[in-house]
């Protein structure tokens, strides 16, 4: 089993070197890095305020001075988008990562231990999957309120079941392999086998999962904020920039709608493509069949 996993990886790597330059990977990672930098550094480099109003320039179209235009109160949309990006990333990234980690740890335990633990976990997963993830997150917000920590928890909870399912399937497969049996025969503890033997052999699916989950986390956070349940105005979030004024003025000022949504879409797109490339990389057997 260990060999079967390891050899194609090595062969794959050498083939990649001989191939042409992976432009898509470069473009995607550049975009993601730029977005992250924009979110982290943007607000501190850009001297403008996201909430400063200026009636003289209200609803002005994109220009050299205001690259994304201004809104109905004359606020600079580019600055607001930078702050919104920061807010979105500060909720979606921790939320997505926490959801992935908790989900895969639970899935690891369920897939390895099976029995009662697994049964209960599976039922828990079923309960959450029976309800749309956006609705799960909304219920959390309804009860705990729309603060940043609560939003991170809401995003994480809504993503946990996917992690459990993916990781459980992988752990079930790996824990049946000979090297796990060998470790057990040598007297290794359950935790040691899980963390040292099973987990490292499930890293492929986890990497794919993490990437897709980060995209999904951005989707859930911006969706919540769009529905008015997430980040509350006047704090800008990429989701709540599309509600309120944007939905009233979009016919006169389409830029109110276009830019925030474009950033969200680009980020989700990048994470999805990244997840897909990771899936190809870790499981080349699927390459010929399931590429679509």
């Amino acid at each position: 089993m260990a060999e079967a996993v390891a050899t194609p990886l090595v062969r794959q790597r050498s083939r990649v070197v001989r191939r042409r330059i992976p432009w898509i990977a470069i473009i995607i990672s550049t975009t993601l890095i730029l977005m992250a930098l924009g979110g982290i550094l943007g607000p501190s480099i850009n001297p403008r305020s996201p909430t400063a109003t200026n009636a003289a320039i209200r609803l002005s179209p994109p220009s050299a001075q205001y690259p994304f235009g201004t809104d109905e109160l004359g606020r600079d949309l580019f600055t607001r988008a930078l702050y919104g990006l920061r807010t979105t990333l500060l909720i979606a990234l921790p939320g997505g990562l926490i959801g992935t980690v908790i989900g895969s740890l639970l899935g690891l335990i369920g897939g390895y231990r099976r029995g009662m633990v697994d049964f209960l976990l599976q039922r828990g997963v079923e309960i959450i999957t029976a309800i749309p993830s956006l609705v799960v997150a909304s219920v959390v917000v309804a009860v705990l309120g729309p603060g940043r920590i609560q939003l991170i928890g809401a995003v994480a909870l809504s993503l946990t079941p996917v992690g459990v399912r993916v990781m459980r399937a992988a752990a079930l497969r790996v824990s049946e392999s000979l090297f796990c049996e060998a470790a057990r025969a040598l007297g290794a503890s359950h935790w040691r086998i899980m963390l040292r033997h099973v987990l490292p052999n499930c890293l492929g699916p986890v990497a794919v999962l993490a990437s897709l989950n980060l995209g999904a986390a951005i989707f859930v956070e911006t969706g919540l904020s769009f529905l008015g349940l997430g980040v509350q105005p006047p704090n800008p979030s990429l989701g709540n920039m599309l509600t309120g004024a944007a939905s009233l003025y979009f016919s006169r000022a389409p830029w109110l709608v276009i830019f925030p949504g474009l950033i969200v879409t680009l980020m989700i797109l990048c994470f999805n493509i990244l997840g897909d490339m990771l899936a190809d990389y870790f499981d080349p057997r699927l390459r010929s069949q399931t590429n679509a």
């Binding site: 995209g215 989707f219 911006t222 969706g223 769009f226 599309l242 944007a246 939905s247 979009f250 016919s251 389409p254 709608v257 276009i258 949504g261 969200v264 879409t265 680009l266 989700i268 797109l269 999805n272």
Partner: peptide
């Protein structure tokens, strides 16, 4: 990748 709410607004525009 396109969130439904954004696509909806784009289509309206």
């Amino acid at each position: 990748a396109i969130p439904a709410y954004w696509l909806g607004l784009l289509v309206l525009i």
